[in-house]
């Protein structure tokens, strides 16, 4: 089966529909037409740019530019994790915790996948590395952000409960233990739901893409299974590391709760 190429004319049809939607938003006074158009424009430009960059990378196959792109994606993901939190850690910790957890949840898992599962040679073959990394970053990011956001929000709201335990001689990690477990649970629930609903309620994006480009559905399903399982592992490991470092950072070396280390204090 040949891939049916999309022309500029083909793309103009959905683009016109988006324009119509923004006109409707203006007519209904929803006030989101501006945001809608900017977001649509951003997605067009970003994706075209990515396509161009990948085209170049695919043809050159030099490891350094590929690694640079991967690191750039990682930093942006780390920033996104931080930006989605209401109360962030001050200073370098804010972006540091996000980036480190994204590194663990996505970078290492992707390397593992291209090395041990797909067995690509060389491992940095961009056709595999970049899409896999992108899938993992995009899908583990929200789990990470939710877990950290829950941690800092609950610590903020339940200060009295944490300190009551400290006053009675509990260790810091017991005093925040329940909050930590709750944060991890909430970070893991979306991927658990996604795995349970995969193929029944939703046709996952990666599988859709492969089917559209002509892969046999069963092969596409196998890739999708791999990516879903990796996302689950990545989300779990990344969230555990992020929440552990974050909860440790909430206390100082004398095990005092230091909420002024969060913004908004």
């Amino acid at each position: 089966m040949e891939l049916i190429q999309l022309s500029a004319y083909d793309l103009s049809i959905p683009a016109l529909l988006v324009l119509a939607l923004s006109a409707l938003s203006w007519r209904l006074r929803l006030g989101v037409e501006r945001q809608l158009l900017i977001a649509a424009l951003r997605s067009i430009l970003q994706l075209l740019l990515l396509g161009l960059v990948l085209n170049t990378l695919f043809s050159q196959r030099a490891p350094l530019p590929i690694l640079a792109l991967a690191l750039f994606m990682l930093t942006v993901a780390g920033y996104e994790v931080m930006a989605r939190q209401k109360r962030r850690f001050r200073g370098l910790w804010g972006i540091g915790i996000g980036t480190l957890s994204m590194f663990i949840s996505s970078f290492s898992i992707t390397l593992l996948a291209v090395h041990l599962v797909v067995r690509v040679d060389p491992w940095y073959t961009p056709q595999y590395l970049i899409p896999l990394l992108g899938m993992l970053l995009g899908n583990t990011m929200s789990g990470m952000a939710i877990a950290l956001d829950n941690l800092t929000r609950d610590a903020w709201q339940q200060r009295g409960m944490i300190e009551a335990q400290l006053m009675l001689g509990e260790n810091w990690d017991r005093a925040i233990g329940e909050i930590r477990r709750n944060a991890l649970r909430s970070g893991l629930i979306p991927i658990i739901n996604a795995m349970a609903a995969a193929g029944v309620v939703s046709l996952p994006g990666m599988m859709t893409g492969q089917i559209l480009s002509g892969s046999p559905p069963l092969e596409a399903a196998k890739y999708q299974i791999m990516i879903l399982l990796l996302i689950a592992v990545g989300t779990g490991l990344g969230a555990i590391v992020a929440v552990w470092i974050g909860s440790r950072r909430l206390f100082d070396q004398r095990q005092r709760l230091r909420l002024e280390r969060l913004t908004g204090a």
């Binding site: 009295g160 409960m161 300190e163 009551a164 335990q165 400290l166 006053m167 009675l168 001689g169 509990e170 260790n171 810091w172 329940e178 004398r254 095990q255 005092r256």
Partner: peptide
């Protein structure tokens, strides 16, 4: 160690919290 110090120096706050 901080937990031992706080077990020896017991603070009763004006408002109690329960976990």
């Amino acid at each position: 160690p901080p937990p031992e110090w706080r077990r020896r120096v017991g603070l009763l706050p004006a408002e109690s919290h329960w976990w």
